[in-house]
Each structure stands twice: as C-alpha cells, then as structure tokens.
Simulated scan of single mutants.
Amino acid sequence: MNKYAALNHELSKLYKNISGKGPKYLKTDAVENILIIKINWYPEKIFSNFTTSDGQTIIKKTYKHIFSKWGEEAKEIIEDVLNYKVTDFYYDENMALSENEKIIIFLLDKIIE
C-alpha cells in the first residue's frame, strides 16, 4: 500500500470514528508543502430541515466542531504516515452548507517529495 493510500485509509477510519460513518470517499493531493484532503460524505437527513439562517448557523457550528477535532487528530496521522510535521491546517466552515466535497488544507514543514 503506498503512503497516500495508507493515509486515506487512516483518515477515513478517523472520520468514521468521529462522525459515526465513513465518508463516500476521501482523496489526498499534494502541492509542494500543501496537503489537500477532499472528503465527500453522505448527507445527514436531519440537516435538510435546517433551512433558516439559525439552522445554517447550527450546521456550521456542528461541522466546525467536527473538523476541529478531526483536524487535530489528522495532524498526528499525517505526521506518522508521511513523516512530515504539520504546521497548520485550514477549512472553510461555509463548506458545511454544501453537499459537495469538503476540502481541508494541511501545511507541512517542507516540500513533499
């Protein structure tokens, strides 16, 4: 298993552990010292009822919590699997309102070879 396949496998397991079910898919791309994780998950039917602005705020806060927890634990996995130090990670909480893939960016301490 190559290092990106192993990384995707471990990150998918982590996502399942936090959210209760795994993503439809999880893909990793790398550009210089930037690791781009694309996650597409199954829509949560309960959130389709949150159409007001208050409802959308609830959705954003929920996913902000999920991504914060997932990102912190994902940093450790990335460092173990790829052997690079993660200096920071970023996600846009507005992606929680999209039914398409979510993207999380990890910045690494050196260029990926």
Rank of each mutant, 00 (worst) to 15 (best):
N2E: 13
N2C: 03
Y4M: 04
Y4W: 08
A5Y: 00
L7Q: 00
L7N: 00
N8H: 06
N8R: 08
E10N: 13
E10K: 14
E10L: 07
S12I: 06
S12K: 11
Y15L: 12
Y15C: 03
N17D: 15
N17G: 11
I18E: 04
S19T: 15
S19I: 14
S19C: 09
G20W: 08
P23N: 02
P23M: 04
K24M: 09
Y25I: 05
L26Q: 11
K27H: 07
T28H: 02
D29K: 04
A30Y: 01
V31A: 04
V31P: 00
V31E: 04
E32S: 12
N33H: 09
N33M: 06
I34R: 05
L35F: 01
L35D: 01
L35I: 03
I36F: 08
I36Y: 03
K38R: 14
K38I: 04
K38V: 01
I39G: 07
I39D: 04
N40W: 07
N40K: 15
W41R: 15
W41C: 12
Y42F: 12
Y42P: 03
P43Y: 05
E44M: 12
E44F: 12
K45N: 10
I46D: 13
I46Y: 13
F47A: 06
S48F: 14
S48I: 10
S48N: 13
N49C: 10
N49Q: 14
F50D: 11
F50L: 15
T51S: 08
T51Y: 13
T52C: 01
S53V: 15
S53L: 15
T57G: 07
T57W: 06
I58K: 10
I58N: 09
I59K: 08
I59F: 06
I59E: 09
K60E: 05
K61R: 14
K61W: 06
T62G: 04
T62Y: 15
T62W: 07
Y63C: 04
Y63E: 13
Y63F: 15
K64L: 10
K64R: 15
H65M: 14
I66A: 05
F67W: 14
F67Q: 04
F67S: 02
S68I: 09
S68L: 11
S68K: 15
G71K: 00
G71R: 00
G71P: 10
E73T: 03
E73W: 03
E73L: 08
A74E: 00
E76K: 15
I77T: 01
D80V: 05
D80Y: 05
V81W: 00
V81N: 02
N83W: 01
K85W: 02
V86A: 11
V86R: 08
D88A: 09
Y91M: 03
Y91C: 01
D92P: 10
E93Q: 07
E93D: 09
M95R: 08
A96V: 03
L97T: 07
S98R: 12
S98C: 04
E99Q: 11
N100Y: 11
N100R: 14
E101R: 07
E101M: 06
E101A: 06
K102L: 07
K102P: 04
I103H: 03
I103K: 10
I105C: 02
L107N: 13
L107Y: 13
D109F: 02
K110P: 07
I111K: 15
I111S: 10
I112L: 05
I112F: 07
E113M: 05
E113F: 01
